[in-house]
Write a protein that binds this DNA or RNA. Structure first.
Length: 643
RNA sequence: GGGCGGCUAGUUCAGCGGACAGAACGUUUGGUUCCGGACCAAAAGGUCGGGGGUUCAAAUCCCUCGCCGCCCGCCA
């Protein structure tokens, strides 16, 4: 849905060398690719991508369920949960609480009984079960660590098996009326990350931008563009088509709002003529509108690509008027019991679904409305995709509910339709952002400022860099862009979309806080260590890249914690995709960075005490690198090899 | 007026039925002969908006009140 809600993004712009497997392409063959597995359960390159933690969890669930059944306890609620940070187990269960009354014994005693009934020997990845008071704690074994390292050796680590299902993510879909402003930026950023998450989760994803090229706003725009003289307009804020044309739109809107009666009347007649022309399928009218729409859209795309947010398809609303599907939808609706004709306008009564607001689908002059066309649009999506996800502003909640129920009445399976609502981004002082009124901060300005500030940061830090790797001017450019834009994206994608955001320059461009650079730095560190290892002994680096790794060599709490964190990644991807909550991946990267930094502090890699430890730690660093690179990739944030 | 969403440390946010509510920024203190200090360690800081309720267990579920936002167009 488009209009004002903007929506989705696509990322993948410049090929960031450090992020393998970007764009869904098979990762380039690197040191980790295609080598025969050496330990534990061999995982050939062709095998299904593993989901370490998920696998362990389902194993534990089965084992616990079996134990409870053996003891004649109910198995409907296993109480499986992730234990608090200071508990070393990978999973825990609080079933004992629930069983206590039935067993007639205190929870700790029941926990002991259940623990004894679980035989770890028959459960893959389960080393042992212990109790801690009323809780059961499940610990992983060496094979789990070994398989995790093996799995994460693959640069595509975190990508789940192909599900054989397709999904379309519609996002951004901002009306082509002018430059993208920050108030709309949440849509492409959240939308792109959502599409990425689905792609990682094994869906075949297409990203769509639904272009409103048939509404009143566009008719006004077209009329204004053809009517006003450029000499009477202010200078454009940028040398870009969207900034150029928005001047006409603003001038036209102003005239309609504040012009004298005669002027407004004449203008309205023009606008109505354009709307009628579109409705009747007049080719000349389409051409006039298309010129304005395509020109503005080209400018908007340029901005979105900086994020990067790219689309597989720009689907125009007029398409569903021209192919007759909108008319057919209207006819089908008219035949329904829920359809009523009031004051000449056809409406749909959705009160049976608890929606008191009637849905008007044909105006009294017989023309269709946005929603009518969107119904045809969604049926078109349903025919082509298994899942249709829409990222849309919360101001469209009611309209979306109506759309969903109308689609259901039309006989569609609305289970296919999912939406992700996000709240507004406001300016300090509560002012909203509007393209028409020209209030707000342009996304181009925000990104420019972000890159400029990041560049300053890079330059001031350049002097006290310890690592001696000769960064040149091109690197400074690259880093400023990766860090600056990454910070903006991360700041937005890391928050739950339902929370309102007030835009503040200082906060949006704070590189300290829990920001992209903090996580990007971890990636650069991993790359630094691995590069250093390669410069050294060739045999050793090869060993690190592919040879035997003895999981016993990873015995410190920090190493074990890092392995456990790496193992969680596929599960995080899966949950983020299923629940359409990309911010979870951001939360994960934060926790991952902390875990990695603790490892880094306590465990020397290149100067490890013995060769086995060094080899194992190098493998761990390589695994960490792939994990953090891909987590950032899901978020659409670049993973720099140096910064 | 009705519907929906938000309310967690000074600030920005995680957590959304279970083990003492977590992190970052800011504040205070400390850390570089050693793989990247955009880092790390420690301290201080919280009636999880108020009040009821359900539960062995509530920030998390229910009710209610308050404040903020969004929506209730033959606009999109």
């Amino acid at each position: 849905m488009g209009f004002d809600a903007a929506g989705r993004t696509g990322e993948r712009t410049e090929p960031v060398p450090s992020v393998p497997g970007r764009n869904g392409e098979p990762a380039r063959s690197g040191p980790a690719g295609g080598r025969p597995a050496r330990f534990g359960n061999p995982l050939s390159a062709a095998a299904e991508p593993p989901r370490m933690f998920r696998q362990f969890r389902s194993n534990v669930e089965a084992a616990l369920e079996g134990a409870l059944a053996d003891l004649d306890y109910p198995t409907d609620d296993l109480g499986i949960e992730e234990p608090p940070g200071d508990v070393d187990a990978a999973l825990a269960s609080s079933v004992a609480f629930r069983l206590a009354s039935e067993a007639g014994a205190p929870p700790p005693q029941v926990a002991g009984e259940v623990a004894d009934a679980v035989d770890p020997a028959g459960v893959e990845y389960l080393a042992r079960v212990e109790t801690s008071g009323p809780y059961l704690n499940f610990f992983t074994d060496d094979a789990y660590a070994a398989d995790t390292l093996e799995a994460a050796r693959d640069e595509r680590y975190g990508r789940l098996p192909d599900r054989g299902e397709s999904a379309v993510v519609e996002h951004t879909s901002a009306n082509p009326t002018g430059p993208v402003h920050v108030g709309r930026a949440r849509n492409p950023i959240v939308g792109d990350a959502t599409a990425n998450a689905l792609e990682y989760a094994g869906y075949d994803v297409d990203r769509h931008y639904y272009v409103n090229d048939a509404g009143r706003q566009i008719a006004v725009f077209t009329w204004a563009y053809e009517t006003f003289d450029e000499a009477d307009l202010p200078e454009p804020e940028r040398d870009k088509p969207d900034y150029d044309l928005v001047r006409y739109y603003r001038a036209g809107s102003e005239l309609l709002e504040e012009g004298d009666e005669r002027e407004v009347e004449a203008a309205e007649a023009e606008v109505q003529a354009i709307l009628q022309g579109l409705e009747e399928g007049d080719e000349a009218t389409y051409d006039r509108v298309e010129e304005v729409v395509d020109t503005v859209l080209a400018g908007m795309r340029e901005t979105l690509e900086r994020l990067p947010a790219e689309f597989d398809e720009f689907v125009k609303e007029t398409r569903f008027m021209r192919d007759g599907s909108t008319d057919r939808v209207a006819e089908r609706l008219q035949a329904m019991d829920e359809a009523t004709l009031e004051e000449g306008a056809w409406q749909l009564d959705l009160s049976e679904f608890g929606i008191e607001k009637k849905l008007v689908f044909l105006r009294s002059d017989g023309t269709s409305l946005y929603t009518t066309r969107d119904l045809a649009h969604h049926e078109w999506k349903f025919e082509r995709y298994d899942r249709a996800v829409t990222v849309i502003g919360e101001d469209h909640k009611l309209a979306f509910d109506q759309l969903r129920h109308a689609l259901g009445l039309l006989g569609n399976d609305t289970e296919q339709l999912e939406q992700l609502f996000y709240s507004w981004v406001n300016l300090p002082g509560g002012e909203g952002m509007s393209t028409r009124a020209g209030t707000g901060v342009d996304l181009d300005d925000l990104l420019d400022e972000a890159v400029a500030r990041a560049r300053e940061e890079v330059e001031t830090r350049m002097d006290d860099r310890i690592r001696d790797d000769d960064l040149g001017e091109a690197d400074v450019d690259r880093i400023a862009r990766q860090v600056g834009i990454g910070a903006v994206r991360y700041d937005i994608v890391s928050k739950q979309p339902t929370k309102a955001i007030t835009f503040e320059w200082e906060r949006a461009l704070d590189f300290e806080a829990q920001s992209a650079p903090y996580v990007q730095y971890v990636h650069a560190r991993c790359c630094g260590i691995l590069a250093e290892a390669e410069k050294g002994d060739a045999d050793e680096s090869q060993a690190a890249a592919g040879a035997e790794v003895d999981p016993d060599a990873l015995s410190t709490p920090e190493e074990r914690a890092l392995v456990a964190e790496i193992a969680r990644f596929p599960a995080v991807v899966e949950e983020a995709a299923e629940d359409l909550e990309p911010h979870r991946v951001a939360t994960y990267t934060r926790s991952f960075a902390e875990t990695f930094n603790a490892f880094y502090r306590e465990c020397p890699v290149l100067s490890a005490d013995d060769p086995d430890t060094r080899t194992a730690r190098l493998a761990l660093v390589a695994a960490a690198r792939h994990t953090v690179a891909n987590a950032l990739d899901v978020l659409g944030v670049a993973a720099p090899e140096s910064m």
